[in-house]
């Protein structure tokens, strides 16, 4: 398994700040550095902020004046949010919002459970063909989704699953596995072998070791990958377009937003509110669980 290089051993995110570093910082920090940081931070925030402000402005105001005039001439309305949620506006985001949730929950839980079991087998059980199998799973990380979509669609047509959530649950689960197994395997290898050996001597089998010893220790890694996968699935467009593009019944919110942008590209009152409805969940998850998400990222990813 020599080609597999664990990236999980990346050092902790927040190092403690010794006084040496602080004095170093003092000499380095110039007002110019701070200014540059502020400029970059502002530049990065303005695009989102502009659309957020616009989503609360009346349609006429959005279309005739820049959002920055809001501060000299503020008029606030919730009409835009009402019309993207309402059925009569033809946007009906609420239904797509539900779809996104329905798609996401199994698409996170299923690969997580499967990958945890597989990672355990790879990390702690000796069996013939282990190295070659692990290498194969690792290598599958680099397969681009595009390569798999059409044959998968044909399979779904043959087994009559098209137009159901199953297409999305199954494909997202399959796509997630290589990265999930790799990450969880790396994490499990860091657990001291003595723990497992001691449990075995006490007569515990692999099932009870998995549940009683591994799972409790594994929670942070599971959370890290869970958030990663959740954001990935919620924000996905391509898979949804291919498998759920036909009807509205199973389409996620990203798909409806993309369609809206394509067909009503100048309806900024709808687009602005719609965009914010679609990002509120991932942004909340992200802000609350940033620490875990960062850990997932640091563990290395070539997924997609």
């Amino acid at each position: 398994m020599s080609t597999v290089t664990p990236v999980t051993s990346t050092p902790p995110l927040v190092a403690d700040k010794p006084s040496a570093a602080k004095t170093a910082k003092k000499r380095l920090s110039s007002p110019w550095a701070s200014l540059a940081a502020i400029v970059l931070g502002v530049l990065w925030t303005i695009p989102t902020f502009g659309l957020l402000v616009s989503s609360f402005r009346p349609e006429r105001a959005i279309k005739t004046t820049g959002w920055w005039t809001f501060f000299t001439n503020p008029t606030v309305t919730l009409d835009n949010y009402r019309s993207v949620f309402g059925e009569d506006g033809g946007v009906n985001l609420a239904a797509f919002f539900v779809n996104s949730l329905i798609i996401c929950i199994p698409s996170v839980l299923i690969p997580l459970a499967l990958a945890a079991l597989a990672a355990y087998a790879f990390a702690w059980i000796e069996f013939p063909g282990k190295n070659i199998l692990f290498l194969a799973v690792f290598a599958l990380q680099i397969v681009p989704l595009q390569v798999t979509l059409i044959p998968l669609l044909e399979i779904f047509v043959n087994v009559k699953l098209t137009g159901t959530f199953w297409t999305l649950w199954l494909s997202h689960s399959a796509f997630a596995l290589p990265l999930a197994i790799y990450l969880l395997h790396n994490f499990m290898r860091e657990i001291p072998a003595g723990l497992i050996e001691a449990a075995r001597i006490d007569g515990a089998g692999h099932v009870s070791i998995f549940f009683k010893v591994m799972l409790p220790l594994l929670t942070p890694a599971l959370a890290a990958f869970g958030i990663f996968q959740f954001l990935w699935v919620w924000n996905d467009l391509l898979v949804a377009l291919v498998f759920a593009g036909g009807g509205d019944e199973v389409a996620p919110i990203t798909l409806q937003l993309a369609n809206l942008s394509g067909t009503r590209g100048t309806a900024w009152q709808l687009l602005s509110a719609g965009a914010f409805v679609s990002i509120i969940v991932p942004v909340t998850v992200f802000l609350l669980l940033q620490r875990y998400f960062v850990r997932g990222l640091l563990a290395g990813s070539v997924k997609g």
């Binding site: 990065w44 925030t45 924000n235």
Partner: peptide, 20 residues
């Protein structure tokens, strides 16, 4: 967090934000 936040936004929503 300011610079990291776009990572949580879907590319579709990012597309809408920048189209504006």
């Amino acid at each position: 967090t300011l610079v990291f936040l776009p990572m949580a936004i879907s590319m579709v929503a990012a597309g809408v934000i920048w189209k504006f």
